[in-house]
Amino acid sequence: SKTSNTIRVFLPNKQRTVVNVRNGMSLHDCLMKALKVRG
């Protein structure tokens, strides 16, 4: 089974995003990807 960790990230202006960290990806990469999608 694939394991994925879901991390809630609290952003300024009362924004919130959820990042799924996959195996083999660093938290930083996942964060940058999530913020790019939002931006």
Rank of each mutant, 00 (worst) to 15 (best):
S1H: 13
S1I: 13
S1G: 11
S1Q: 14
S1A: 08
S1T: 14
K2E: 05
K2N: 10
K2T: 09
K2Q: 11
T3S: 06
S4D: 09
S4V: 08
S4R: 15
S4G: 12
S4N: 11
S4C: 12
N5K: 11
N5I: 05
N5D: 06
N5V: 09
T6L: 15
T6K: 04
T6R: 07
I7D: 08
I7S: 01
I7L: 15
I7P: 05
R8H: 03
R8C: 03
R8G: 02
V9E: 00
V9K: 08
V9G: 00
F10L: 04
F10P: 08
F10I: 00
F10T: 08
F10Y: 11
L11V: 02
L11M: 03
P12L: 01
P12R: 02
N13C: 10
N13Y: 14
N13G: 05
K14R: 09
K14N: 12
Q15E: 09
Q15H: 00
Q15K: 04
R16L: 03
R16S: 04
R16H: 15
R16G: 03
R16C: 03
T17S: 15
T17I: 01
T17R: 08
T17A: 03
T17P: 01
V18L: 02
V18E: 05
V18F: 04
V18T: 05
V18I: 10
V18A: 04
V18D: 00
V19L: 14
N20I: 14
N20T: 09
N20K: 15
N20H: 11
N20E: 08
N20Y: 10
N20D: 04
V21M: 03
V21I: 08
V21A: 13
V21L: 05
V21E: 01
R22N: 12
R22H: 10
R22C: 06
R22D: 04
N23Y: 11
N23H: 12
G24D: 12
G24V: 08
G24R: 14
M25I: 14
M25T: 15
M25R: 14
S26R: 09
S26C: 11
L27M: 04
L27R: 01
L27Q: 00
H28C: 13
H28L: 13
H28N: 12
H28Y: 11
D29V: 09
D29N: 12
D29A: 11
D29G: 11
D29R: 08
C30Y: 02
C30F: 05
C30W: 01
L31P: 00
L31T: 09
L31A: 08
L31Q: 01
L31M: 05
M32I: 11
M32L: 12
M32R: 06
K33M: 08
K33G: 04
K33D: 05
K33I: 00
K33R: 06
A34P: 14
A34T: 03
A34S: 11
A34V: 02
L35P: 01
L35Q: 00
L35A: 08
K36D: 08
K36N: 11
K36R: 13
K36Q: 05
V37M: 10
V37A: 04
V37E: 00
V37L: 12
V37W: 09
R38G: 02
R38P: 02
R38H: 01
R38L: 04
R38S: 03
G39E: 06
G39V: 06
G39C: 08
G39S: 13
